[in-house]
Design a protein around this nucleic acid. Structure first.
Length: 440
RNA sequence: CGGGGUAUAGCGCAGUCUGGUAGCGCGGUAGUUUUGGGUACUACAGGUCGUAGGUUCGAAUCCUGCUACCCCGACCA
């Protein structure tokens, strides 16, 4: 992609409303634009990041055995009356009326709807276990949206819903998501810590929040520091093995870790002083087991081996991709700008043409872009008329993992300069070697 | 919802106290210059001063209402 033909509105100055670094950088690097309080447009560059985050989430959801579908954003109030949540949910729910005066709502979550879908088709325990998920926009009319897309009113959520015949089976479904979440966040370059959590209005009695430690986090958290060094389960983890998953979850819940709401000061005091981590965190995922809370009132029942019908045991599992974007920026940036982890970078490399119009630099930039694309990698070529200094500053700001600097000086010796954004490390090499390094 | 604040050009701001017909920096456009870490110069374009009303010969400026947005607290992916 040529920058001169792309739509990447860079801001040199920071809009005054942005208080935290991820919000500032998201605005400056042209990721998002605010349209109303807590409502954002995703500009092309930001959308590419969001899409890559969603791709990682999908891969790990699918790996764990979950199946993707897509439910609508608009739901019927009647569905929510069945569960009793229409009145219980409060003002966070955006209620709307259609032309026939029918009461509708913009979905803040989908437990009711997925339960309605499930009960419409599933009759037997033989169809279980089942885990259905989707990635869909949600709306929660937050009292105070803030920090850009960190807490927005309209936001994208991956929400998965599990259905099982009994509590033991549901526990395994819970463990699948637990492990999938550890892997998902790890792949995005984040160290997530599962913490015992309050269940909130979703309900239930078993719940973990996946927390990223960050000074700008909204909640206070307390944990054992060894969590930061725990090895994340590998890709070949057997998600069908009850014992294997139970072992992983048991390890990841063995040490103290709790959010403010669930904090037990006495228990935390038992953790050796040197291992106590008292910090702030960003919640990027939340998983719940809530049993028959919805299946009972909504009569989602299946016949067991004995022919007796019983309500299914359910859980729900959320990740906020639109929150992950700022969370990743909080975790990965420096004074100059964003540093995208390779797995979710909007382009793999920036190619800086220091002298556009010079046939040598133009040719090499074109060749580099093609060579990268042939390897399945993407590049953003800065072919604008800006001065070299401005291009370096822009490249650092937008934070692509690699920069290939192509200028007349280097090309005189047949070399380009390859810079790794994260480390600042740079080296002169042939264009071919640069492509090789990036691809490896 | 309680408390605090802001609204003037795309962005960041001055001008408001003391009323006299709007300015600076960045950015944009055209050109000259420069070219390996945000080059310099010249010219140009761009504003119903959030909105509605009031006071006045005259309102960005004074008064009243409204709206939007931001920050601090209680809710949440």
């Amino acid at each position: 992609m040529r920058l001169s033909r792309y739509f990447l509105p860079i801001l040199r100055e920071t809009p005054k409303e942005a208080e935290i670094v991820s919000h500032r950088l998201a605005l400056r690097a042209g990721l998002i634009r605010q349209e109303s309080a807590g409502i954002y447009a995703w500009l092309p560059f930001g959308l590419r990041v969001l899409n890559r985050i969603c791709a990682v989430i999908r891969e790990e959801q699918n790996r764990s055995g979950a199946i993707e579908l897509l439910m609508p954003t608009i739901q019927s109030a009647d569905l929510w009356r069945e569960s009793g949540r229409y009145d219980a949910y409060g003002k966070e729910m955006l209620r709307i009326t259609d032309r026939h005066e029918r009461e509708m709502l913009f979905g803040p979550t989908n437990e009711e709807m997925i339960t309605e879908i499930f009960r419409g088709y599933v009759r037997s325990y033989k169809s279980l276990p089942l885990n259905l998920y989707h990635l869909q926009w949600k709306f929660r009319d937050e009292i105070r949206p803030r920090f850009g897309t960190m807490r927005s009113r309209e936001f994208l959520m991956k929400d998965a819903y599990s259905f099982d015949i009994d509590q033991a089976a549901a526990r395994h479904a819970y463990n699948r998501m637990f492990v999938a979440y550890l892997r998902t966040f790890e792949r995005m370059g984040l160290k997530s810590i599962p913490m015992r959590a309050d269940t909130g209005p979703i309900g239930g009695d078993l719940s973990h929040e996946f927390i990223i430690l960050a000074s700008t986090g909204e909640s206070a958290v307390f944990c054992h520091k060894d969590y930061l060094d725990f090895a994340v389960p590998p890709a070949d983890t057997n998600f069908d093995s009850v014992d294997e998953l139970a072992g992983i979850v048991s390890k990841w819940t063995s040490l103290y870790a709790a959010t403010e709401e669930m904090h037990d000061a006495a228990a935390f005091a038992q953790v050796p002083q040197a291992a106590q981590v008292s910090a702030r965190g960003i919640e990027v995922g939340h998983i719940f087991y809530f049993g028959t809370k919805y299946s009972e009132p909504m009569r989602a029942v299946v016949a067991g081996p004995d022919g007796v019908e019983r309500p299914v045991h359910m859980g729900s599992y959320g990740i906020g991709p639109t929150r992950l974007v700022p969370a990743i920026i909080e975790a990965s940036h420096d004074e100059a700008g964003i540093i995208w982890p390779d797995a979710i970078a909007p382009f793999n490399a920036a190619i800086l043409n220091l002298k556009p119009g010079d046939s040598a630099t133009d040719t090499v930039c074109g060749t580099l872009e093609q060579a990268l694309e042939a390897r399945g990698l993407s590049a953003l070529v800065d072919d604008t008329d800006e001065r070299p200094g401005a291009k370096f500053a822009t490249a650092d700001l937008i934070g692509l993992p690699w920069q290939i600097i192509v200028g007349p000086k280097g090309l005189a010796e047949g070399k380009v300069e390859l810079k790794r954004r994260a480390t600042g490390e740079r080296a002169l090499m042939s264009p071919e070697d640069a492509v090789e390094r990036i691809a490896s």
